[in-house]
Nucleic acid binder design. Structure first.
Length: 809
DNA sequence: TCCATCCGGGG
DNA sequence: GTGTACGGATGGA
């Protein structure tokens, strides 16, 4: 017998002698990679009696069941909650997971209702054994041999929870550079691979050139490069291998090239090679090592909280780390390689290493949150990394369903799905603002509005329209239909969301005293999960989907926020704006303290854990009109806080195809207007920029517009400026591949805009077309702001000096 | 305006 | 792997 302190990181199973063997890969407290084996676990599902089949009929059916490919191990009668009612079921255990889909087909033919017959076997194991990845377990067992394993294997006899958590996870980041190719298949060679870990950096390449960098290592061929890739990983023994879009690019590329040279990439801890996921979901799993693709997390989880709408490594690193990629044109890599250009190749190695460095730092920064999320929803980090929030909510619910003895609902059928998709849910309430510049704005918002609503009104599919409260429950504020939720019995979803909210409050309380980054990651994970419930309930693929619940949640949200607006107006506050869960107001004759008092009073009447909070005081804010000037624009405003930070909502400042100068002008104008409260200065600033543009005093850099080529040039029908530029490049023998971001400026050479677009290399600042930039770039981004301040478009661009508006101030 | 498909990230 | 893939842009009808 051996005893180990073990942190599971990855789980899968193999079939041995027609029976499943669970394999838990992870590391011990001492840092040794081990595999814990359990061969005492079998797949099962439930069947439910109905009008055609009584429970006795079903028992009889399964007791006499024979099938050459299916072997039943056990039949048990159990009771579970289904739609809020206790229901008798049969639990059918079979020999191995592969038999379950075959069984499903048979049951479908015989119209027998089955449940939980699509829960992945390894995940089922984690649920039933209550094993949570990255948490400590004390395992007793026997050392055993297992086919092909690189590491020690222990057959589990006993398992109990420990207290510790995985702290020093070993991360290795990698990145490849390939010879840029016209085709999208991985047909051109990989030229270099970089690695970055703690105290570890390396770039391996197969073209020898002169370099002083000691991180550069040379090999003789692409095949040797791939071999080195494998060796580096085997030597470093990472817990996490991380890349940026490595699911969709780096690893598939490496796998493809290794196949070509017959290099065995047996980096899995069981000597398996990484394999491409089937279907269109390009996932690459490495047995025993968590492959962490930072891009996947960015897209699936972080996207809502990031400012950037482009998830390139450069943009994401800029926002999260404040660092950037090495600035070099990737298309120069081909020529540099062919001509063995020492200086450029050195630069490309640096570029290659920097990408690994950025990826490493992103992974290091994000991993604590992901590990916390993994623990909350009880899934391996590999899965959490790749799943959308709705799936995490679902997995959280499935885990807890077992604890509450609730039968997991099935996924929707094809028809149900079509029906669900055809309906749309009315959204939040947004108050149209009166355009203008406001001073001393106070903001109030509901703390976690949707989650607290679900809890307070017991909203869920199971509590919907219960027969017990038909006459007593207050209906939800939805017009034209009567919807109510049970007052007698708490629903599963409300219980779960309450648990999340309360857990988070507890964590936040401890956090106040300890400032632990782990706890902060945990409270963020809990918040993220709670906030995803509403989306989950209304998401058509959900098992706990309920259209009426999702519609009721937004209906209640509209009801409560309107109540706050009405009350504040009655109390003589000026409500400037409101969106979903927040209200922005000015005090007029009254004071901030008065407003806070009113909010307290409102809170007295709110049910459950709902709470309206005072968020902050903003010295100034600006609201603009819509394009047609008929009304106030929703979701487009800017505020400045007491620390002089600009909060800009909805103004398109970060779009790629806006020039630097336009972005700069917009930001600066907002800053002058809100910080300095000086309309005249803002106006003069724009006038001054306009003059400078006209006099061509500004550097070319300010005028660059970036647009991405998304497909081969000949496939474009409409010739936009970027396509025209690409065509001209092709005439000179250059081929902008799909994905290339073209940088160009608009010049005066020609009539149509597309004719006037020129690559930046061919231009100087003398060539740019001032009127284009003034009218199409600068004016559009500030026009609405100046309209509020009393200036017209013409004031901004006309050639003669302006003075008539001085009287305004 | 509505429905199908393509794309994102990477080089 | 006991698995249907998301949501927006685009472009064709």
């Amino acid at each position: 017998m051996v005893t180990i302190r073990f942190f599971p990181l990855d789980i899968d199973y193999r079939i041995v002698d027609n029976k499943p063997v669970i394999r838990l890969f992870g590391k011990t407290k001492e840092g040794e990679q081990v595999c814990v084996i359990d061969n005492e676990f079998y797949p099962y599902f439930y069947v439910m009696p109905d009008e055609n089949n009584s429970i006795e009929d079903l028992k009889n059916y399964f007791e006499t069941f024979t099938h050459e490919e299916i072997k039943i191990e056990k039949i048990e009668q159990v009771k579970k909650q289904y739609h809020g009612k206790e229901t008798s079921l049969l639990k059918i255990t079979v020999q191995n997971p592969g038999q379950v889909p075959k069984f499903r087909a048979v049951l479908r033919e015989n119209s027998i209702r089955y449940f939980e017959a699509d829960i992945l076997f390894a995940r089922r194991y984690l649920i039933d054994k209550e094993i949570v990845p990255t948490q400590e377990y004390i395992i007793e067992g026997e050392e055993t041999a297992m086919q092909g394993m690189k590491i020690r294997c222990i057959e589990m006899k006993e398992i109990r929870s420990g207290e510790a958590m995985l702290e020093d996870a070993k991360i290795l980041a990698f990145d490849i550079e390939a010879y840029p190719s016209e085709r999208r298949t991985f047909d051109s060679p990989i030229l270099m691979i970089s690695f970055y870990g703690k105290n570890y950096k390396k770039v391996v390449t197969w073209k020898r050139f002169n370099t002083k960098q000691d991180y550069v290592e040379f090999v003789n061929s692409e095949a040797e490069l791939l071999q080195r890739f494998k060796e580096v990983i085997e030597d470093y023994k990472p817990d996490f291998i991380t890349g940026y879009f490595s699911d969709g690019f780096d690893l598939p590329y490496i796998i493809e090239r290794a196949k070509k040279y017959k290099v065995r990439l047996d980096i899995g801890l069981d000597r398996s090679a990484p394999e491409l996921g089937k279907g269109r979901s390009n996932n690459v799993k490495i047995t025993g090592i968590n492959h962490f693709d930072v891009f996947q997390l960015t897209r699936n989880v972080l996207s809502q909280s990031l400012k950037t709408d482009s998830y390139t490594l450069n943009e994401v690193a800029k926002e999260l780390l404040g660092s950037e990629k090495v600035d070099i044109d990737i298309l120069k890599l081909g020529p540099a390689w062919d001509n063995k250009d020492d200086e450029l190749l050195d630069k490309f190695c640096e570029y290659n290493l920097q990408d690994s460095l950025l990826t490493f730092e992103l992974c290091e920064k994000l991993l604590p949150s992901v590990m916390e999320l993994a623990k909350i929803v009880n899934l391996p980090v590999y899965d959490v990394n790749r799943q959308a929030m709705s799936q995490m909510v679902e997995w959280f619910l499935i885990n807890n369903a077992r604890k509450y003895n609730i039968l997991v609902p099935n996924k929707p059928s094809r028809d149900e799905l079509a029906e669900r998709k055809s309906k749309s849910i009315q959204g939040a309430f947004v108050l149209e603002p009166v355009p203008g510049l406001y001073n001393d704005i106070l903001t109030f918002d509901f703390m976690s509005l949707y989650p607290t609503l679900i809890s307070a009104h017991n909203i869920s599919g199971a509590t919907l329209r219960c027969s017990c409260c038909r006459d007593t429950a207050e209906p939800a504020p939805l017009e034209g239909q009567k919807i109510w939720f049970c007052k007698q019995k708490r629903g599963f979803l409300p219980i779960m969301i309450n648990e999340l909210i309360e857990r988070r409050l507890r964590v936040k309380k401890i956090l106040k005293e300890t400032k632990s980054p782990f706890l902060n990651a945990r409270q963020l994970g809990l918040k993220l999960l709670a906030n995803s419930f509403w989306g989950y309930i209304g998401f058509s693929f959900s098992r706990w989907y309920s259209f009426d619940s999702a519609a009721s949640i937004t209906a209640y949200a509209r009801y409560y926020i309107k109540k706050v607006i009405d009350r504040m107006q009655e109390e003589k506050f000026n409500v400037v704006y409101s969106d979903t869960d927040s209200v922005l107001l000015t005090t007029g004759e009254r004071t901030k303290e008065d407003a806070i008092e009113v909010a307290k009073d409102i809170n007295k009447d709110l049910p459950g854990i709902m709470e309206l909070e005072f968020e902050g005081h903003f010295p100034a804010g600006i609201f603009v009109s819509t394009r047609d000037e008929k009304s106030g624009a929703k979701k487009r405003y800017a505020l400045i806080d007491e620390k002089d930070n600009l909060i800009i909502k909805g103004f398109e400042t970060v779009r790629r195809n806006t020039s630097q100068i336009a972005k700069q002008v917009q930001k600066k104008v907002l800053a002058i207007v809100l910080k300095e409260q000086n309309k005249d200065k803002a106006y003069k600033y724009v006038r001054q920029i306009v003059e400078k543009v006209r006099r061509k005093e500004l550097e070319l850099q300010n005028f660059i517009i970036k647009t991405q080529i998304t497909k081969p040039i000949e496939e474009y029908d409409s010739i936009g400026p970027h396509v025209a530029v690409a065509k001209r490049m092709m005439e000179r023998g250059l081929t902008p591949l799909p994905g290339t971001v073209l940088q160009y400026v608009i010049t005066t050479k020609g009539t149509k805009i597309r004719d006037r677009a020129r690559e930046i290399d061919e231009c100087s600042k003398e060539d740019i077309d001032p009127e284009y930039y003034i009218e199409k770039q600068i004016v559009p981004v500030v026009e609405k702001i100046f309209e509020v301040l009393g200036y017209t478009r013409d004031d901004l661009i006309s050639l003669k000096e302006q003075s008539k508006l001085d009287s305004f101030f």
